[in-house]
Design a protein around this nucleic acid. Structure first.
Lengths: 350, 350
DNA sequence: TTGTACGCGTTATCAT
DNA sequence: ATGATAACGCGTACAA
């Protein structure tokens, strides 16, 4: 009963059992070189009987590649990250590569740890979708220069030998705000940015640009952070949206429309609005960002900005494989996907 | 400019640069054995300059362990999976282990592929949180018997040498239904199970048990699947909930309360109810399952069953490490966490 | 205190 | 068609 932690069965074990050289077993396994039907049968029999699994470590050590790609995510509890990883996986699986995901929980330090851990296992390439940090970007540059293919997704990492895939959030933010302006709104709040963090956010800058362009003043009081959680945005940002909206509602003159940093913040905000006994969109209109599946199923359905998430994942994977499989240096590619405003009833009542 | 795909820097390279034997470098790296301060300095200098990273493959091949654990998830776009992985990560990180996540997209075949891929990289152990399948369980048994520590989470895999962590969904489902019954409901629908799939679902069986116990008839028409998506439940099950609820609303005599398989299905159902111009909970009461963050932020807030998700992840990680780090055989542990009904306004108006 | 020899499990190369 | 040998990069055991 008590199983002493067994050694893995090795190719050499098989060879011994089948009475051939290890090399012959290797040939059978990889279908390379000539093996007589008879020998092959012997080997196959031994393989079946002994339940052999090749040691990827040893194989990779010899072959110098693992056919595995690492994906670093900041936050797994995030529909965006999920959809992204689906896209990545689709492409990799089709090309026979495995995917290992590491999560950094939004910390630059954990980011580094994830890089190292994946590289230690000699993944063939890295897709990085975490938030940029000086620390992380410096390390990434080293990694790239050391010869490991790297593709960034939506992360501010630019390097002549790494590709970048992202979506045009500046324009996305702009269009969201522009939409509200075109509906006649003049006091438009933003939820999800605090004065100490997030001001770099592209979608926020797009919002600012739209206001400016239409001659609307940017009022500080209309920009709501949402407390502590603003530091660590993740899945649970309903909280952030809820708190942010409460701040805005408490103003002497609350906004007539708000643009939330993402759909979850928007959900929280919608809730705060309803709790206050106000109607959406009649009293306050609201726009989110991301178009997560739930967005079309709230009441009212949420107007939001859709980014082609899965496509970003797919493209990143393709760019990475291109680098991995090419012997020569590859020209840098930077691809920016367009975002699309999806108008629903949270801004335009029906 | 054009970088020819460089070879990784090896320990031998460092040794050559520092003018010592590889072994000496190894000693410096691992802090094992004696090295004179002087030699150490030379080596450290070379290390810094050449940007060395140990080859985990080679190291693992030699050491026969990777200090890495694999986690197999069915669906990454799932708050439950996300929270689970957080718990796992917390514990592993604290003990110096890395975590690689593989996603099987709910397919038994991909499940196997994930196992293989992780084992090929010789992870020290496996945590499996995917849906059970004959194929998968058979393979898991082999894996366990071959000596790799395995812990299952919420998956019907029982093996004398593998641990199991789960929550009492039978009781959770029972309490949800019981709650509705105690509020006076007699026609209680279930959303998220179709006659061709999901009948094995514990929370559904709990629902059945509660009905039976209270002498309520189980009516087939009150059990709604939700179409194609029922086959592949994942994050996007608002759809499923929405469709399921529409089926129920179309009945000659619709239910006065529904219990949804999970919170997302519940959100979809709530939406369908509102669209139909009915009120929650006055016209139809609703209970979800999981207590995802959003559940407390819908309108009305959702009554739901909470399971200690992160704790399950943490415990699973601890059990796994126990197995990994123990030389002797370890006694099987099966731990079932209790679930907790969280009553909010979707069942009890205020 | 430092170095040498060998092995981890594969596969590439060359020989037979 | 098959086998012997070396090597991938590191660490253990032992020698110097």
């Amino acid at each position: 009963m008590s199983k002493p932690p067994k050694r893995h069965v090795t190719l050499t074990d098989i060879a011994a059992a089948a009475g051939v050289a290890p090399m012959t077993v290797s040939r059978v396994l990889n279908g390379s070189g000539y093996v007589s039907a008879e020998t092959r049968e012997k080997v196959l029999a031994a393989l079946r009987k002994m339940n052999y699994r090749p040691n990827g470590l040893a194989r990779a050590l010899k072959r110098q590649r693992t056919e595995t790609v690492g994906l670093v995510l900041g936050d797994i509890a995030n529909p965006f990250a999920a959809e992204l990883s689906r896209g990545v996986r689709e492409v990799l699986a089709a090309r026979g590569y495995n995917l290992f995901i590491c999560v950094s929980e939004q910390s630059a330090k954990e980011d580094l740890a994830a890089f190292d851990s994946l590289l230690d296992h000699r993944v063939d390439g890295l897709i990085v979708a975490t938030r940029a940090s000086k620390l992380g970007n410096d390390r990434l540059a080293e990694i790239v220069e050391a010869g490991t293919p790297v593709v960034a997704i939506g992360r501010d990492f630019r390097h002549p030998q790494a590709d970048l895939v992202t979506a045009d959030h500046l324009r996305g933010g702009y269009e969201a705000a522009q939409h509200l302006i075109s509906l006649g709104h003049r006091r438009i709040g933003f939820i999800g940015v605090s004065l100490t963090s997030g001001l770099w956010l592209r979608r926020f800058q797009g919002y600012l640009e739209a206001l400016r362009e239409h001659g609307l003043p940017v009022e500080e009081e209309l920009v709501a952070g949402g407390g502590a959680s603003a530091e660590q945005p993740g899945y649970a940002t309903e909280e952030m949206g809820y708190e942010g909206m409460r701040q805005l509602l408490a103003l002497r003159e609350p906004p007539t429309a708000v643009f939330a940093r993402n759909d979850f913040a928007a959900f929280g905000a919608m809730n705060a609005i309803k709790r206050a006994g106000l109607r959406i969109p009649q009293d306050i209109a609201i726009v989110g960002y991301d178009d997560v599946p739930l967005a079309s199923h709230t009441s009212p359905p949420l107007t939001t900005v859709r980014q082609p998430t899965r496509e970003q994942g797919r493209l990143a994977a393709e760019l990475l494989l291109r680098r991995i499989e090419s012997r020569e240096p590859v020209a840098r590619e930077e691809r920016i996907f367009a975002c699309e405003l999806v108008v629903r009833e949270s801004t335009v009542g029906k």
